[in-house]
Amino acid sequence: MITLKHIHKAYAGKTVLHNVSVQFPTRQLTSLIGPNGAGKSTLLMLIARLLKPCSGEILINGRNAAHYRVSEYARQVATLRQHPQFSLRLTLEELVAFGRFPHSRGALNEEDRQQIDTAIGFLGLDHLRGAYIDELSGGQRQMAFLAMTIAQQTDYLLLDEPLNNLDMKHAVQIMRALRRLCDEQGRTVILVVHDINFAANYSDHILALQGGAVRFCGPVAEVVTRSRLQALYGLDFEILRSERGFVCNYFNPSDQEREHEQG
């Protein structure tokens, strides 16, 4: 269980997060949503311990995150950030092997090798095993990094905008893989995602931030409503539900809204 208590974060005097207290349900997929500058990525980086909170505390399994050793923490929480430029010459397999570093500190044993194979197989990347990371497409590279994070075998996975710059197919592949990680392996996944439709269709739980504070938080069925999204994004929403999931349409305002604007 990850619990945040009264988290406050400011950069250079500017408050980014203000008194955030939330709990992330275990074995579920939680999406962080909200407009730009809401503090989503900052919140995720605080949990990942890549940033330090100004005040407040983060509890992982009931223990203050700040009290873990770096190596210990890496066996609990894995983080994936974006890698826009990557010039290292490593094969996909070598990259995924880095995921075992928290466990083996570089000397791979039989179990490590097995976990690497499993992670690569899980994402269906076997055919790219020997390919160099810097020669892969953006989508494949993102999958490769995800495989590394999976091989880390942590209870918690944090992903910062994993769908950025990906085409729809790769985005769907990644979200389905994350879904399976929750359902099949019982991992807790927290990710920042911009596309509300991806959040609504693949998450169990949604945490919406606005201006550095929690706007709303809860199971998808409860919080994905027209009024809430409208207030969050300042757009006119229409939410269509079918047996295949949600479609949140915000592209064109309804006639009613248009009249309202003109009047």
Binding site: A48, R49, L50, V70, S71, E72, Y73, A74, R75, V77, A78, T79, L80, R81, H83, L88, F98, G99, F101, P102, R105, G106, A107, Q152
Partner: peptide, 21 residues
């Protein structure tokens, strides 16, 4: 510390996330 150097080359965030101080 050679394996750690490999991890350092991945950058600060990734290295920290992989448990390298």
């Amino acid at each position: 510390t050679l394996p750690s150097l490999d991890v350092l080359a991945l950058g600060r965030d990734q290295a920290l996330s992989l448990g390298v101080d």
